[in-house]
Protein backbone atom coordinates (compact mmCIF):
# COMPACT_ATOMS: atom_id res chain seq x y z
CA UNK A 1 0.00 0.00 0.00
CA UNK A 2 2.79 2.34 0.96
CA UNK A 3 4.48 1.42 -2.30
CA UNK A 4 1.38 2.35 -4.30
CA UNK A 5 1.09 5.69 -2.53
CA UNK A 6 4.72 6.47 -3.37
CA UNK A 7 4.14 5.67 -7.07
CA UNK A 8 1.04 7.84 -7.29
CA UNK A 9 2.91 10.70 -5.63
CA UNK A 10 5.74 10.46 -8.18
CA UNK A 11 3.22 10.48 -11.01
CA UNK A 12 1.51 13.55 -9.63
CA UNK A 13 4.84 15.28 -9.21
CA UNK A 14 5.81 14.49 -12.78
CA UNK A 15 2.46 15.77 -14.02
CA UNK A 16 2.88 18.91 -11.93
CA UNK A 17 6.34 19.63 -13.36
CA UNK A 18 5.12 18.96 -16.89
CA UNK A 19 2.29 21.41 -16.35
CA UNK A 20 4.75 23.97 -14.96
CA UNK A 21 7.02 23.46 -17.95
CA UNK A 22 4.17 24.09 -20.36
CA UNK A 23 2.94 27.07 -18.40
CA UNK A 24 6.39 28.67 -18.52
CA UNK A 25 6.08 29.11 -22.33
CA UNK A 26 4.27 32.26 -23.20
CA UNK A 27 3.13 33.34 -26.64
CA UNK A 28 4.40 36.82 -27.23
CA UNK A 29 2.48 38.95 -29.70
CA UNK A 30 4.85 41.33 -31.49
CA UNK A 31 3.34 44.37 -33.09
CA UNK A 32 5.66 45.75 -35.81
CA UNK A 33 6.29 49.49 -35.76
CA UNK A 34 3.92 51.09 -38.23
CA UNK A 35 5.58 52.48 -41.36
CA UNK A 36 5.15 56.20 -41.45
CA UNK A 37 2.86 57.73 -44.02
CA UNK A 38 5.00 59.54 -46.59
CA UNK A 39 4.05 63.15 -46.48
CA UNK A 40 5.45 65.09 -49.44
CA UNK A 41 3.54 68.31 -48.94
CA UNK A 42 5.57 71.49 -49.21
CA UNK A 43 7.65 73.31 -51.82
CA UNK A 44 10.26 71.36 -53.74
CA UNK A 45 13.14 72.73 -55.82
CA UNK A 46 15.31 70.98 -58.39
CA UNK A 47 18.82 70.02 -57.22
CA UNK A 48 19.77 67.84 -60.18
CA UNK A 49 18.37 67.34 -63.65
CA UNK A 50 19.48 65.22 -66.58
CA UNK A 51 18.28 64.70 -70.14
CA UNK A 52 19.20 61.28 -71.54
CA UNK A 53 21.93 61.19 -68.90
CA UNK A 54 23.37 64.63 -69.81
CA UNK A 55 23.49 67.15 -66.99
CA UNK A 56 21.09 70.05 -67.49
CA UNK A 57 21.88 72.07 -64.39
CA UNK A 58 24.69 73.99 -66.11
CA UNK A 59 22.54 74.64 -69.21
CA UNK A 60 19.20 75.68 -67.76
CA UNK A 61 18.30 77.92 -64.86
CA UNK A 62 16.20 75.77 -62.54
CA UNK A 63 16.36 78.17 -59.59
CA UNK A 64 12.94 79.70 -60.21
CA UNK A 65 11.11 76.42 -60.83
CA UNK A 66 9.17 75.07 -57.87
CA UNK A 67 6.86 72.12 -57.40
CA UNK A 68 4.49 72.58 -54.54
CA UNK A 69 2.27 69.90 -52.95
CA UNK A 70 -0.56 70.79 -50.61
CA UNK A 71 -3.76 68.95 -49.57
CA UNK A 72 -3.76 66.58 -52.54
CA UNK A 73 -3.13 69.41 -55.03
CA UNK A 74 0.06 70.45 -56.76
CA UNK A 75 1.11 73.69 -58.35
CA UNK A 76 3.97 74.44 -60.73
CA UNK A 77 5.71 77.75 -60.09
CA UNK A 78 7.64 79.20 -63.07
CA UNK A 79 7.11 75.96 -64.88
CA UNK A 80 9.68 74.19 -67.04
CA UNK A 81 9.21 70.99 -69.08
CA UNK A 82 7.70 68.57 -66.61
CA UNK A 83 5.44 65.54 -66.48
CA UNK A 84 2.43 67.83 -66.58
CA UNK A 85 2.04 71.35 -67.83
CA UNK A 86 -0.89 72.53 -65.72
CA UNK A 87 -1.71 72.56 -62.01
CA UNK A 88 -3.97 69.84 -60.63
CA UNK A 89 -4.25 66.99 -58.14
CA UNK A 90 -1.71 64.36 -57.17
CA UNK A 91 -1.85 61.00 -55.44
CA UNK A 92 0.55 58.29 -54.29
CA UNK A 93 -0.21 54.65 -55.07
CA UNK A 94 0.45 53.67 -51.44
CA UNK A 95 0.76 56.26 -48.69
CA UNK A 96 3.23 54.12 -46.71
CA UNK A 97 5.27 52.52 -49.46
CA UNK A 98 4.81 54.78 -52.48
CA UNK A 99 6.32 53.60 -55.76
CA UNK A 100 4.31 55.73 -58.10
CA UNK A 101 3.02 59.25 -58.05
CA UNK A 102 0.27 60.33 -60.37
CA UNK A 103 -0.51 63.85 -61.46
CA UNK A 104 -3.92 64.78 -62.75
CA UNK A 105 -3.74 68.15 -64.42
CA UNK A 106 -7.09 69.93 -64.47
CA UNK A 107 -9.02 68.73 -67.47
CA UNK A 108 -6.49 66.04 -68.42
CA UNK A 109 -6.15 62.32 -67.70
CA UNK A 110 -3.85 61.24 -64.86
CA UNK A 111 -0.21 60.54 -65.66
CA UNK A 112 1.82 58.35 -63.35
CA UNK A 113 5.57 58.04 -63.04
CA UNK A 114 8.09 56.04 -61.07
CA UNK A 115 8.95 57.80 -57.90
CA UNK A 116 11.77 57.40 -55.40
CA UNK A 117 11.89 59.10 -52.07
CA UNK A 118 15.30 58.44 -50.53
CA UNK A 119 16.98 60.17 -47.61
CA UNK A 120 20.35 61.50 -48.74
CA UNK A 121 22.60 63.10 -46.11
CA UNK A 122 19.63 63.35 -43.81
CA UNK A 123 17.50 65.20 -46.35
CA UNK A 124 14.48 63.76 -48.10
CA UNK A 125 14.76 63.83 -51.87
CA UNK A 126 12.18 63.23 -54.51
CA UNK A 127 13.30 61.80 -57.85
CA UNK A 128 10.94 61.73 -60.81
CA UNK A 129 11.56 60.27 -64.27
CA UNK A 130 9.47 61.40 -67.22
CA UNK A 131 9.37 62.36 -70.90
CA UNK A 132 7.63 65.69 -71.54
CA UNK A 133 8.39 65.71 -75.29
CA UNK A 134 9.45 62.75 -77.40
CA UNK A 135 9.08 59.43 -75.56
CA UNK A 136 12.71 58.58 -76.31
CA UNK A 137 13.99 61.59 -74.37
CA UNK A 138 14.12 60.75 -70.68
CA UNK A 139 14.46 63.39 -68.02
CA UNK A 140 15.29 62.77 -64.37
CA UNK A 141 14.69 65.60 -61.92
CA UNK A 142 15.72 65.32 -58.30
CA UNK A 143 13.99 67.69 -55.91
CA UNK A 144 14.63 68.67 -52.33
CA UNK A 145 12.38 70.62 -50.00
CA UNK A 146 12.81 74.37 -50.28
CA UNK A 147 13.94 76.02 -47.06
Amino acid sequence: MKQLYKQTKTKWLLLFFAAMAFASCKVEHLTPAKESVKDISGDWVVISATRNGTDLMSLIDFSQFKLSFKDGKYTLVNRLPFLVSKDGAYSLDDPQYPFKISFTATGSPAVATAFTYPIVNGVRQLTLTFSPGCPNNTYVYTFKKAN
Partner: peptide, 13 residues
Protein backbone atom coordinates in the same frame (compact mmCIF):
# COMPACT_ATOMS: atom_id res chain seq x y z
CA UNK B 1 21.29 69.10 -82.28
CA UNK B 2 20.96 67.26 -78.99
CA UNK B 3 18.76 65.28 -78.69
CA UNK B 4 18.44 64.68 -82.44
CA UNK B 5 14.66 64.27 -82.18
CA UNK B 6 12.57 66.53 -80.00
CA UNK B 7 9.22 68.22 -79.58
CA UNK B 8 8.73 71.82 -78.43
CA UNK B 9 8.28 70.62 -74.84
CA UNK B 10 11.81 69.15 -74.70
CA UNK B 11 14.96 70.96 -73.73
CA UNK B 12 16.74 71.38 -77.03
CA UNK B 13 20.45 72.09 -77.50
Amino acid sequence: YDPPKTLDNDFFT
